[in-house]
Design a protein around this nucleic acid. Structure first.
Length: 601
RNA sequence: CGGGGUGUAGCGCAGCUUGGUUUAGCGCGUCUGCUUUGGGAGCAGAAUGUCGCAGGUUCAAAUCCUGCCACCCCGACCA
């Protein structure tokens, strides 16, 4: 491609809309253009990058014998009602763009494709002989994100590879899951990314095991906790660890004490000169289930620990049935306004005890009349601890479960693991923290969707049983941007060779010099013939402009047909290092070919 | 949705507090000509704006008031 004929517009200044380096650079270098919030045009250079990434993804998927297909983006609401996700996807998270057609039929713009694929499986898979089966597609997904961010990192329209596998049993699922783990590792390695596979929460997708593939970068939205020995890595949402040991209580007998102005743990501990590990805090949450039922949840946890809201949500979702709901819609810490809606009298905020009376909850059809009390493991073994008294300005000290306070029945793990905590597999290891960009996520779904939608097959025994499923996603456009986030310098993007839009750019310092022009044209033809993707900067610009642009757009190798031409040589510069060397004209193609092959393999 | 912020030329910004001196300006980019030609050149000239939108106040509004819209940042969501 000749730059003189290309839509090529670079910016000298950072666009005001961009915050993180990769977003600024993609805009400045003319790869993308914002059309609306979370909606971007992929311009020609970007599209080539996305094609490269897609191709790597495709090759790795095909190597596992997965089959490519293309599913509809316009999806009938009834499919989503069947799986039970229409409400959660259009109401709670509200992530699906929902619309009506001229017949008033409800449709959704596909945020994911479990429903469509399960329908196909239901209709087409009859026998165990057809299993296992793995279908995937690469296409645009639509999600009405609560907050689109950082360009392609979190768009409302983005390119994703999603794959769905069907199995006769868990064992077969695990095999494919392992294959996917390998395929995903290959994709990211081939794309030139530094990454880590971590244990993950399955979230709204559901199912049992899942792992995320995190591209390590400071701008990442996720926190990863891992150990140096490489034995453990998990998303902070999912991570488990051993908490620090509790200190011995300084109190020996039960007593109610006046503790004025101690509505935070910090103030309380200072006042009592007690360690927060000897304090039980009681955190109030408000859960709303899909049947409209509100449940007040009291989380009882050691005061030096924090509540992991993802774990809490999972616990509450498990309990949905107790309240007549199917799923949890909202989980919030009720503010003063929210409290007014159900509180029978004003709450002793900051002084709540584990046994706070259910008479604080006014009688209301849509509000459960009792607190749901969940006690975290960290609070269970404490002796002579400090906690609230249900009376403002008073706490109790020296309290014990089974004596002054009854230990609630629901003992759970809702504690947030933190960097510095000891690891469970080996307490000598401590958790380290890193930021990551989630570019891939693989799930063992099990029979969640197949059961809900009646997707069954006939097994060897002639019984009709639900299909066992897995699903596997890669954010193709996100992956491309995270490559930039991981690889740039003050001059611009440094694309990994495997996903660069072009391998080589030939910069002609002076287009009015016939010798330079002729040498460049000849090299351009030779490189293209050799299958090396080449840009020719034949614009009538000064050399400095061309060098700046070449660096900005991040093409791995730059050829300059300049001074050394007299000696029958051109200068070849590696973008990543700016290392330059003169190479004889006839050696250029074989040399570059070798470099590129080495970089891509 | 809650909190914070911004909308002025393709991009980055000033002007707004204290309405009139602005036929609305600066830098970059764009166009024309000449010179220059190895790290975003110089000189000369030129074009480009519903000042986010709609009302209102006023003799007079980019500037003051009201409403709306869009976008960005912090939190819940996720590939």
């Amino acid at each position: 491609m000749r730059l003189s004929q290309m839509l090529f517009v670079t910016l000298r200044e950072d666009p005001a809309e961009a915050e993180i380096p990769s977003h600024k650079l993609l805009l400045r270098a003319g790869y993308i253009r914002r059309i609306g919030s979370g909606i971007y045009a992929y311009l020609p250079l970007m599209w080539r990058v996305l094609q490269k990434v897609s191709q790597i993804v495709r090759e790795e998927m095909n190597a596992t014998l997965a089959q490519e297909c293309l599913l509809p983006q316009l999806q009938p609401a009834e499919l989503w009602r069947e799986s039970g996700r229409w409400d959660t996807y259009t109401q709670a998270e509200g992530i699906m763009f929902a619309l009506k057609d001229r017949q008033e039929r409800e449709l959704g713009l596909g945020p994911t494709h479990e429903e469509v694929i399960t329908t196909i499986a239901k209709e087409m898979i009859r026998s165990y002989r057809q299993l296992p089966l793995h279908l995937y597609q690469i296409q645009t997904k639509f999600r009405d994100e609560i907050r689109p961010r950082f360009g392609l990192m979190r768009g409302r329209e983005f390119i994703m590879k999603d794959g769905y596998s069907f199995h006769a049993d868990e064992e077969s699922l695990k095999k494919t899951y392992q294959d996917m783990h390998q395929a995903y590792s290959n994709m990211l390695r081939r794309s030139g990314l530094s990454f880590r596979a971590v244990q993950a929460d399955s979230g709204a997708i559901g199912g049992s095991g899942s792992q995320e593939f995190m591209v390590l970068a400071e701008a990442g939205e996720d926190e990863v906790l891992y150990t140096e020995d490489g034995q453990y890595a998990a998303n902070v949402e999912k991570a488990v660890s051993l908490p620090a040991d509790a200190e011995n209580s300084i109190f020996t007998s039960y007593e109610k004490r006046e503790t004025p102005g101690t509505d935070t743990i910090e103030k309380l501990c200072k006042f009592l000169k007690s360690s927060p590990t000897q304090v039980v805090k009681n955190v109030l949450y408000q859960a709303v289930y899909d049947n409209g039922m509100t449940v007040l949840v009291l989380v009882i946890i050691r005061a030096d620990q924090e509540v992991n809201e993802v774990k809490l949500q999972n616990e509450l979702t498990k309990l949905s049935g107790n309240y007549g709901g199917k799923t949890l819609l909202f989980l919030t810490v009720p503010d003063a306004e929210a409290q007014q809606k159900w509180a029978a009298k004003s709450l002793p905020l900051g002084y709540i005890a584990p046994d706070i009376g259910d008479d604080y909850i006014a009688s209301h059809k849509q509000v459960n009349s009792k607190f749901l009390r969940l006690v975290d493991h960290t609070a269970v073994d404490l002796k002579n601890f400090v906690t609230g008294s249900n009376e403002s300005s008073y706490h109790v000290v020296g309290a014990n479960w089974g004596e002054q306070l009854k230990l609630p029945e629901n003992v759970v793990d809702v504690r947030k693991a933190r960097p510095g905590d000891r690891a469970i597999h080996n307490p000598a290891q401590t958790l380290q923290s890193a930021r990551g960009i989630e570019v891939g996520h693989i799930f063992q779904l099990g029979t969640k969707y197949s059961k809900a939608m009646g997707a069954t097959y006939t097994n060897e025994q002639g019984e009709e049983v639900p299909l066992v499923m897995g699903c596997y996603g890669v954010g193709v456009s996100r992956l491309a941007q995270s490559a930039v986030e991981q690889s740039y310098d003050k001059d611009g993007i440094i694309w990994p060779v495997a996903i660069a839009p072009y391998h080589v750019i030939i910069s002609i310092p002076n287009v009015s010099d016939a010798a330079q022009l002729q040498a460049a044209e000849q090299l351009y033809d030779q490189l293209n013939e050799a299958g090396i993707e080449t840009l020719l900067d034949d614009r009538n610009e000064r050399a400095g402009v061309k060098f700046k642009d070449a660096d900005l757009i991040g093409i791995p190798y730059r050829i300059v047909t300049g001074k050394s031409l007299k000696a029958g040589k051109v200068e070849v510069v590696e973008r990543a290092t700016h290392k330059a060397q003169d190479i004889a004209l006839e050696e250029v193609v074989p040399t570059l070919k070798q470099w590129i092959d080495a970089a891509v393999s």
